[in-house]
Amino acid sequence: MDFPLTSAASPHLVVLGSTGSTNADLLAAVDEPHLATWATLDQSAGRGRLDRRWVTAPGRSLAASVLLHRGDLPTEALGWVPLLAGVAMRASVRRVVGAADVTLKWPNDVQVGGDKVCGLLAELRPDASAVVVGAGVNLTVPADQLPTPTATSLGLHGASGSALDLADAVLSSWVADLGRLVGDLTAAGGDATASGALDAVREACATLGRRVRVELPGGAVLVGEAVDVDEAGRLVVRSATTGGTTAVASGDVTHLRYE
């Protein structure tokens, strides 16, 4: 498989005919440069957030991972990497489908028309020297083969071309934008406000202003309105019962479509 656009955006591109997980492959690889990219159209054992299985349709979905060397990025700023990955993927999807209604569901699910087209997972290497960010994008999956009723694909929103061409277009711009955004954050010493990361996430995030249900670690549930993303990247939720606010660092967020 040929990915000419991505070959120009990444210093080292590995395209696999099939694999269990591009994230696992890249985490285990040695001597890979910053922005090294591994990709496939046939991933069988991908994982999403909260260790959920990420199922991709062979030949119709992209699974890809990018290696980001930390460099001088402070530990406290690492939580911004998956958020910026979502911002970068949102921009990439918008270029392909040409739709204004491409948004993020906090922290980093990319949606078109409110339905999920891409999931992202960031994993820190055991020695904390680098982060691997994985993406799963539904490219040409028809409606009757989507994994859930709230999923969608690029093809269902007017993206034209083969799965391979769409994969190259999406991946190349994602790698370039992700490298730029993380570079800006690093140059700002991890300051999300100074680098523009905070404004970019707030602008992209459709969760803000929505009534949400958040399943918190440990099993507690928070229902209320998502009112902000704070300077640490946490989702700030105003409780529907107490009126108080809680800053959520991790949790499973559902947009409540009906009151």
Rank of each mutant, 00 (worst) to 15 (best):
H12A: 15
V102S: 11
W106D: 01
S250L: 11
T6I: 09
P107K: 01
L154C: 09
Q145M: 05
M1S: 13
A187Y: 04
S7W: 11
V175C: 13
L235Q: 00
A192C: 08
S160M: 15
S153L: 04
P4L: 14
T150Q: 08
A143T: 06
D144S: 15
S173M: 13
A130C: 06
P33M: 09
A63Q: 07
E203S: 13
V117L: 11
S239C: 09
L50H: 10
R180P: 00
D144T: 13
D199S: 06
G243C: 02
L139K: 05
A100H: 06
G136W: 01
S153D: 14
V221H: 04
G196W: 08
V223T: 11
A151F: 03
L124D: 12
G209W: 05
A206N: 08
A24S: 15
A197Y: 07
A240K: 06
A249R: 09
G218Q: 10
G158D: 08
L104Y: 07
A77Y: 03
T241G: 00
E123H: 14
T40L: 02
T242P: 03
P11G: 12
A249H: 13
G224F: 00
E215T: 10
G158E: 13
L26S: 01
D31L: 09
G155R: 00
G46I: 02
G158Q: 13
E231C: 06
A63D: 13
A187H: 12
G251E: 02
R90Y: 03
A232T: 12
P126I: 10
G209I: 05
G134T: 07
R202I: 01
L208E: 02
D101Q: 14
P11S: 14
D127H: 12
D177S: 14
E215F: 04
A99G: 04
P11N: 12
C205P: 03
P217W: 09
D191E: 03
V112P: 10
Q43V: 06
D199Y: 05
G155L: 03
R49I: 04
W38Y: 13
E76A: 15
A206F: 09
V96W: 00
A151K: 03
V117M: 13
A204K: 03
H34G: 14
P126E: 13
A188T: 08
N108F: 01
R53S: 14
G59A: 11
V212G: 01
D72N: 14
V137H: 02
L198H: 01
G179E: 02
S239M: 08
G48D: 06
H255I: 14
R94P: 14
L27D: 07
A159W: 11
R213M: 11
D51Q: 12
L68N: 03
W54L: 01
W174I: 03
H34M: 10
L166D: 05
L198A: 02
L256T: 05
R125Q: 12
V170W: 04
V131N: 07
V214Q: 00
V212I: 07
L67Y: 04
E203K: 02
T19V: 12
H255K: 09
W54V: 04
G218M: 12
D115Q: 13
